[in-house]
Design a protein around this nucleic acid. Structure first.
Lengths: 113, 113
DNA sequence: CCGATATGTAACTTATTGGTTACCTATGAA
DNA sequence: TTCATAGGTAACCAATAAGTTACATATCGG
């Protein structure tokens, strides 16, 4: 579970998933065209995604056909819907309108970060 | 969106969300009892969660009542169900059974929590 | 065979995270 | 006021993440 959350944490890796959804079976080099950074960086992101089983690959000659695998995402989906669903549109949500501030903006104006 | 994924990437922060779900309105010090590391580390995790709007706080005297906020999670849920749902139990899933290997079989030692 | 292409690994550098200790601010109670 | 408690900030340090260049391997088309 940790591997999945970790893999999804980087925007480039989520972009890879989006690309693989649009271009199933595309190669590593195909993916590289959509990124600023080097092919090696893409490969490393693919490794992280592979550890989380979010990307699977089928070798075809000297190419690798890459595919998005939604199964791990289903796991996270299940975790949220089962463990957090009781909070959807419930008390915690409503609190947004009665609570003075979120943690992200500290009140005491003395300091700036 | 990036803030949310980033906030969810660390197991301690997901644990905080679970705790706040069980103990709505609890204080920072209350939370600290469930972690090995220091109160300051907990506060920092709370800041990350606050930036992602996953935790909101109501000040009560010198205490802060902390609450889990599921709204950002709904956003992610929506993203997945709308953008990835076509892949659920579809071709990419089936590929698991015909593909020689996932990308993950490479070295890379185990990740820690 | 050869050279070009496609991919992967090793070693390294830098940026970011996650944690610490020490200190500061604010509130509640004696 | 004085002091303990709850919370937060600043400065710093260690571990990890994210990227690089250089090198290695494997496959395809002459």
């Amino acid at each position: 579970m940790d591997l999945i959350f970790h893999a999804l944490a980087h925007p480039a890796r989520r972009k890879i998933l989006d690309l693989l959804k649009s271009l199933p079976g595309c190669s590593v080099n195909d993916l590289c065209q959509y990124f600023e950074f080097s092919r090696i960086a893409v490969i490393k992101h693919l490794q992280v995604l592979g550890e989380a089983q979010l990307v699977i690959a089928k070798k075809n000659g000297r190419k690798r056909e890459l595919y998005f695998n939604a199964v791990p995402i289903q796991m996270i989906y299940d975790r949220w819907t089962t463990e957090y669903s009781s909070f959807w549109a419930s008390k915690a949500t409503d609190l947004k309108f009665q609570i003075e501030a979120s943690l992200s903006k500290s009140k005491r104006g003395s300091k700036k970060s």
